[in-house]
């Protein structure tokens, strides 16, 4: 056809030039990541193999001493275990609290939906620091809850500067991420699928467990991954609501870098955390792909 012939002409070539090849589209973000993420990270890897010098952060002598110190000291392992435990527990609690929330949002019709979403997202407009201070007003020894308990003559409760306080803060801050991920997954489930299960003899609960829940797993998995990673690297919340009583890896790393001025050891600790987190995520993604093998690829 005459038209087809025209399509290879100079006009088309100019048009093609207007839309760059896909790889080119990755350049801006890629450049940003290389400069501000990859280079600092590689620098940190290098740093973790250097030696601490008296009176300076490091000296250029290669060693594995830093890694040995981290891996051989039971103290560090306890902190690592606590960090992972807190992140895992935060993930579980946000899931338990977030799922019904997500379900309500996903099923809310008309004008209620944007309102619920707004309520869920509003806390994100305030930073974690401000929100942690907010929690301190509630949870502190002279906080509102303890004032109320004392007024009722029930003594007082240790709500802050312990694991409970950190957990409350983490769950509160990361709940929206979990709820949003699950809600977007739930919204993609056609309403008829649940009705089909009901018509085939399943009670509402049965229909939920056999159909709705498995179909919402993509959102559960991605929400859990997001919250876990965020909670693992949380720094501000454990410091403010845990005081120095709940020591987690990010706090320890910052202390090592800023207070002890031991950059190589701090870097090695960061690399160990990174390595363990990567391992956990790798296993997690493998399990997830198994559970979600019904999704078209």
């Amino acid at each position: 056809m005459a038209r087809a012939a025209e399509l290879t002409g100079p006009e088309t070539r100019r048009l093609n030039r207007l839309s760059p090849p896909p790889a080119l589209l990755l350049v801006p973000a890629g450049l940003f990541l290389v400069v501000f993420f990859l280079v600092p990270y590689l620098n940190m890897v290098r740093m973790s193999f250097l030696t601490k010098a008296p009176g300076a952060a490091f000296t250029h002598v290669l060693t594995v001493e830093n890694y040995l110190r981290v891996l051989q000291d039971a103290f560090y392992w306890r902190v690592i275990a606590r960090t992972f435990w807190l992140a895992g527990l935060t993930t579980l609690l946000t899931l338990i609290l977030g799922y019904p929330l997500a379900y309500t949002i996903a099923r809310a019709g008309g004008r209620r939906r944007p309102l619920l979403l707004m309520l869920l997202l509003a806390p994100l407009l305030v930073g974690a620091v401000v929100r942690s201070y907010g929690w301190m007003i509630w949870l502190g020894r002279v906080g509102l809850i303890n004032q109320a308990l004392r007024a009722l003559g029930w003594g007082e409760a240790e709500l802050m500067y312990n694991t409970l306080g950190v957990l409350i803060g983490l769950v509160h801050v990361y709940l929206p991420f979990m709820a949003l991920a699950i809600a977007s997954s739930l919204e993609q489930i056609p309403a008829d699928v649940e009705l089909a299960a009901r018509s085939l003899g399943a009670s509402p609960w049965r229909a939920f467990w056999r159909v709705t829940w498995p179909l919402s797993l993509p959102g559960v998995f991605s929400g859990a991954m997001l919250v876990f990673v965020l909670a693992l690297s949380a720094y501000v919340i454990p410091i403010l609501l845990g005081g120095n009583n709940v020591l987690v890896m990010p706090m320890l790393i910052v202390q090592m870098l800023l207070d002890a001025f031991h950059w190589p050891l701090g870097s090695a600790m960061a690399m160990v955390l990174f390595g363990l987190a990567s391992l956990v995520l790798w296993l997690y993604v493998k399990a997830m792909n198994r559970a979600l093998r019904w999704i078209p690829r």
Partner: peptide, 30 residues
């Protein structure tokens, strides 16, 4: 679930996470 009615939906509403056999078996299993 107590009416014993078979329904074919316009979009079929098959369970995407179940195989053909699992889809068909669902009503008998419950």
């Amino acid at each position: 679930e107590h009416r014993n009615v078979g329904i074919v939906f316009q979009n079929y509403a098959l369970f995407p996470h179940m195989t053909v056999a699992q889809n068909v078996a669902f009503g008998l299993e419950v």
